[in-house]
Design a protein around this nucleic acid. Structure first.
Length: 452
RNA sequence: GUGGCUAUAGUUCAACGGUAGAACACUGGGUUGUGGUCCCAGAUACGAGGGUUCGAUUCCCUCUAGCCACCCCA
């Protein structure tokens, strides 16, 4: 018989039994009310961009068959080989908490026969993703991404427009001076040829490479290009260039994208060493960074590219597609780091205070009238003292407080107190809603900006 | 996954081998129906488990979590 440990544990302080409070899992976080304004800001901005650019929101499954990710992202990638939350379900086999959403978008495109819709199908998503990594600031095991995908069209204008959308999105959020890095990694075939060449080159320099880099050479040679290792960075200068190995169609495609970007006046940096860590990418790839690499490590805010082979790989008809996604937590980290003030939030406009039982009853019904009239009203009905209630009103930052007490109930009136001037006036209780509306309309300096 | 640093109230920080303090925040008061300032009072913490010790929050170990670097990525 197992002993019940918790009950047997010694009592800590008299009175309360010593119990372990459940902890948050490593890398998981609650998003508290204080942070919600940031979340709303990002989400609202994203939604208005989705609407503006014609992307319709799609809500995707969070749990998928493991094979969806291993096939699309690639078995050899770090994400699949060591960072997925995977488990065996009783009847459904191996399941995985999605580490990213593009694969699911492609799956949904197939599942719902979206090839029958007008192309391109433009989708926007938002939601939690899961990767079993070692947490750090801006890196959690559950994090949120928002993304835009355009499926069913291989025109380079799509690539350019996605980058334009990303650029404008970050600007609208208040994040100026972001850096957009772009590159083309061509078709899988061309890349394959190139990798052979690259491996050949680095093999010849093998002796110079540190152990970790040697491992890359056999496991994921493309990664040698964006390595932080100084030796590698030196060697890569003389290494064969990916650009020279691109097939003609990819080259032309890339030139077109660049042309559009120039025409649209979007600042970008050509980064020939940019390769992405997910296998499904083809041709255009890009990443978004907070700024031209200032000192200190930074992490990408977002990234994306074209994935022309993905849908076919997953069993659909050959369908070109492109998209990008960004990390919400990382965006918010940047917003905070830069001290960006958010637009005014929907706080209470008036506060309703009451004194005495009769008044409380009246107040509760009046509150309903105010609320249904669209006036954001604060209250603390559970408190009795007027002083306490005014204090609460002050904390809400409201300009007007409605006060109703014994006397007012008898007279059929109510007090309106202006919190700034301290001026109070008595009005007919029945006209409360109308009066308040009038006052708010007059006094409204269209209430903007609070720094939080 | 590897290496390093850290872990004290809600938060930011103190102190100490003999069971912990401040600031801000919170709750309640400063007489009966009036906020922002002020005054008073109160609640709340040594991440978990072992070990050394007469005694550990303090020293050691393990675990857990956070941060930093690597890896990789959003």
């Amino acid at each position: 018989m197992p002993k019940e440990k918790e009950d047997a544990a010694p009592k800590k302080a008299a009175g309360r039994p010593a119990k372990k409070a459940p902890q948050l899992l490593r890398g998981f976080r609650d998003i508290l009310p204080v942070d919600q304004p940031y979340w709303r800001w990002v989400r609202n901005t994203a939604e208005s961009f989705a609407a503006g650019y014609g992307f319709e929101e799609i809500g995707l499954a969070i749990l998928e068959e493991t094979s969806l990710f291993s096939r699309s992202i690639g078995n050899q990638t770090d994400i699949v080989s060591k960072e997925m939350f995977t488990f065996i379900d009783k009847s459904d086999g191996s399941l995985t908490l999605r580490p990213e959403a593009t694969a699911s978008v492609a799956r949904a495109y197939i599942t719902h026969g979206m090839l029958n819709l007008p192309q391109p199908v433009k989708l926007y998503y938002w939601g939690p993703m899961f990767r079993r990594e070692r947490p750090q600031a801006g890196r959690q095991r559950q994090f949120h991404q928002l993304g835009f995908e355009a499926l069913g069209d291989d025109n380079p204008v799509i690539d350019a427009q996605l980058i334009l959308l990303a650029y404008n999105f970050f600007k609208a959020l208040g994040l100026d001076g972001i850096s957009i890095q772009i590159n083309s990694i061509g078709t899988p075939q061309a890349r394959h040829e190139y990798v052979k060449e690259l491996v050949g080159y680095f093999r010849s320099k093998r002796k110079l490479l540190p152990v970790e880099e040697k491992e890359r050479l056999s496991k994921n040679p493309l990664r040698l290009l964006d390595s932080k290792d100084p030796v590698c960075q030196q060697l890569r200068a003389d290494a064969p260039q990916l650009m020279d190995w691109l097939d003609d169609a990819s080259k032309t495609h890339f030139m077109k994208v660049i042309e559009y970007l120039d025409e649209l006046d979007i600042p970008y940096t050509l980064n020939p060493y940019l390769v992405r860590g997910l296998d499904y990418y083809t041709r255009t790839v890009f990443e978004i960074w907070p700024g031209e690499q200032e000192e200190g490590a930074q992490s990408a805010l977002g990234g994306g590219g074209r994935y022309d082979g993905l849908i076919e790989l997953l069993g659909g008809r050959p369908t070109p597609a492109a998209g990008f996604s960004c990390g919400v937590e990382r965006i918010i980290l940047q917003l905070k780091a830069r001290g960006i003030a958010l637009p005014h939030q929907d706080t209470a406009e008036v506060f309703l205070a009451q004194i005495g039982d009769a008044a409380k009853i009246k107040a509760v019904t009046l509150f309903e009238q105010l609320r249904t009239a669209g006036i954001r009203t604060g209250e603390s009905f559970s408190k009795d003292g007027l002083k306490t209630q005014l204090e609460a009103a002050h904390k809400h930052g409201v300009q007007y407080v409605l006060i109703i007490g014994q006397k007012e109930v008898l007279d059929g009136t109510i007090l309106i107190r202006d919190m700034e001037s301290g001026v109070q006036e008595i009005i007919d209780f029945k006209k409360t809603v109308a009066e308040i509306k009038k006052k708010l309309a007059n006094g409204s300096n269209s209430g903007q900006v609070n720094g939080l």
